[in-house]
Write a protein that binds this DNA or RNA. Sequence first.
DNA 1: GGTTTGACCCGTT
DNA 2: CAACGGGCCAAAC
Length: 108
Amino acid sequence: MKESFPKTIYALVGKIPAGKVATYGQLALLAGSPRASRIVGAVLAKVPQEKLLPCHRVIYATGALCPPHAFGHSAIQRQMLEQEGITFLPDGRVCLKKHLWDGSNTAE
DNA sequence: GGTTTGACCCGTT
DNA sequence: CAACGGGCCAAAC
């Protein structure tokens, strides 16, 4: 495995199953750098939707969604996740306890 | 090849 | 309880 970081991120995000969510830290961890959580976001920011990556399934480690400008609009990500079957808490956060992606099982 | 920034995360005030 | 700052790693200019 010698794929670049962004390449790894694309693969990981593309492996996130519907109805599940992954945190930037989680992707960074699977990518090989647990502290490169920022890189994950930066990479997704550079990579256009042409990759068809479900970046809307990527959220903060706290369960909060990423800033509105990330998807070009606010509450968009939330709407998408709701359609995926994600459960939102009254706090406005995703139920990480129920929808946190199990990337450890998908890691190769 | 060095510098700047970035869709983050956590501890402290 | 809420807000602020700092630190981390890698990609882009």
